[in-house]
């Protein structure tokens, strides 16, 4: 048994229980939130159709393998599986694109393999960096400076390298 197998069931129980303690109408609030979740998922599907088609063609053509083999040596030196390289390229630019790429990757690689776990950790611990910077500088009507890109890129690279390192250290 793994400790992490307990976390999700316990979190669900605690949230519901605490809701009852604080006299929240848990069924009503849950349904409202769940309905919003369903709408969000439905809104995600149209762009996923286009992205999955593009990612599918990209992968099937062998282009993903070509990219992996070009950067494969450098990645291997960092202990990073080259299967996950296309994910690294898409992740900072598009969240739904990365989701499509991760889904494609996990159909060929088991999610419980080293590569599958690295892809999972990478997806969960990085974000659409360029998009976030674009949204925030757009909100301020200012051009994003180069320093913010350097800081964010440093954080991203740390995330990529560590996703492989943590999986290597935590799963044997």
């Amino acid at each position: 048994m793994k400790l992490t197998d307990m976390v999700v069931p316990l979190v669900i129980g605690c949230i519901l229980l605490w809701g009852l303690v604080r006299k929240v109408n848990i069924t009503e609030e849950f349904t409202a939130g769940a309905a919003q979740g369903l709408r969000d998922a439905a809104e995600l599907v149209p762009i996923l159709v286009l992205l999955m088609t593009a990612v599918g063609m990209f992968t099937a053509s062998g282009a993903a393998d070509i990219i992996s083999s070009i950067f494969g040596n450098a990645a291997q030196k960092l202990g990073f599986p080259q299967e996950c390289l296309p994910l690294v390229l898409i992740r900072p630019v598009s969240g739904s694109g990365a989701l499509a790429a991760a889904d494609r990757l996990l159909t060929t690689i088991s999610p419980d393999s080293f590569e599958g776990r690295v892809a999972s950790v990478l997806m969960a611990s990085t974000e659409t960096t360029f998009y976030t910077i674009a949204v925030y500088s757009g909100a301020l009507r200012k051009k994003a400076g180069s320093r913010i890109f350097i800081a964010a890129a440093a954080a991203d690279i740390t995330g990529f390298v560590l996703s492989a390192l943590t999986v290597r250290l935590m799963f044997r």
Binding site: K2, D5, V7, F171
Partner: peptide, 21 residues
């Protein structure tokens, strides 16, 4: 996503995710 692709423990990656983030 991991569960959909047949992971035996979809959330086993949580500690690694937290450390990495």
């Amino acid at each position: 996503l991991r569960a959909a692709h047949g992971s035996t423990s979809p959330f086993e990656i949580m500690p690694a995710v937290l450390v990495t983030s």
